[in-house]
């Protein structure tokens, strides 16, 4: 059995050599992050600045927050960069991550058909807005994928005292963009981070119908995967990335990213 394993290993390494990219070997780290950051174009804006300064390439795997944390838990990433505070704290408490750092915030908005059949534009707060959707039988498109956005959505339903079940609650089980595509088609209301919304092109009849409640505040954290648990983790380079992104330079890079003249993410390091 061991021998078989060794044969497969050496065959696979041979294949790896064969398929190795022609580019020179360069230091790189793998960051598991969320679709919201990748899809908005934030990484495309800030990572070249970091790479130019440090020579470290950053490879971003964009997944839902749940999957991104799982990727870190399995040791398949060096750094996780997500937005689901409670889960992030569990991740660190369970020993998978070293320490969580605040990086930035953006906010969630509720989008829906412009004619606003559930009247969210008049809602006093987010919980009331969610309750209004459930009360009028309008549709709601949910991520349903245990992502940070989905976790935030579930918290809002709870605050509104609504059980999100029934034909009006469309669980897409897919990413933010796919969920917005569904909402635009239905049409349905949806909870989305502002970044994805601003860079989303296929809006159809949708527009922002509710925003501004402090509970919609969406903090992003960055965590080094614990090298004590996964010794192969590139701790030095990963920590260099974290140090940079919470530094003045990194924070300024985040602040300078705009879509259509609008700033999407706000530095949160004091």
């Amino acid at each position: 059995m061991k021998q078989t394993r060794r044969v497969i290993l050496s065959a696979a390494s041979g294949l790896a050599l064969l398929a190795a990219p022609p580019a020179a070997a360069q230091a790189f780290i793998t960051v598991s992050s969320t679709t919201s950051t990748e899809n908005s174009g934030l990484f495309g804006h800030i990572l070249p600045i970091f790479t130019a300064e440090t020579g470290i390439e950053v490879r971003v795997v964009a997944q839902g927050t749940g999957q991104a944390l799982e990727t870190g838990r399995r040791g398949d990433a060096d750094v996780v960069f997500v937005h689901a505070r409670a889960q992030e704290e569990t991740f660190v408490a369970d020993g998978y991550g070293v320490q969580r750092f605040d990086v930035m915030v953006n906010d969630f908005v509720i989008v829906g058909p412009a004619d606003d059949p559930a009247g969210l534009k008049q809602a006093p707060d987010a919980a009331a807005a969610m309750a209004a959707i459930a009360g009028t039988g309008a549709s709601f498109a949910s991520r349903g994928d245990d992502s940070g956005t989905h976790v935030a959505e579930k918290a809002l339903w709870e605050a509104a005292g609504v059980e999100p079940a029934g034909g009006w609650h469309l669980s897409t089980g897919s990413g933010m963009g796919a969920t917005l595509n569904t909402a635009a088609q239905a049409p349905a209301y949806a909870l989305t981070d502002r970044g994805t919304w601003l860079s989303f092109r296929n809006r159809g009849p949708l527009e922002i119908v509710f925003e501004g409640d402090p509970v919609l505040f969406n903090p992003y954290g960055v965590i080094l995967v614990n090298p004590a648990r996964h010794p192969h983790v590139k701790a030095a380079q990963g920590q260099a990335f974290i140090d940079w992104i919470v530094s003045d330079v990194g924070q300024a890079a985040i602040a300078s990213f705009t879509v259509g003249g609008e700033q999407l993410f706000f530095p949160s390091v004091e």
Partner: peptide
């Protein structure tokens, strides 16, 4: 190929080689 899997030490996940496999 995951680091937590049997061939994790090859560090092949998230590479073109993994896609080829």
């Amino acid at each position: 190929l995951s680091r937590s899997g049997p061939f994790g030490s090859l560090a092949l996940l998230f590479t073109p080689t993994a896609m080829i496999l």
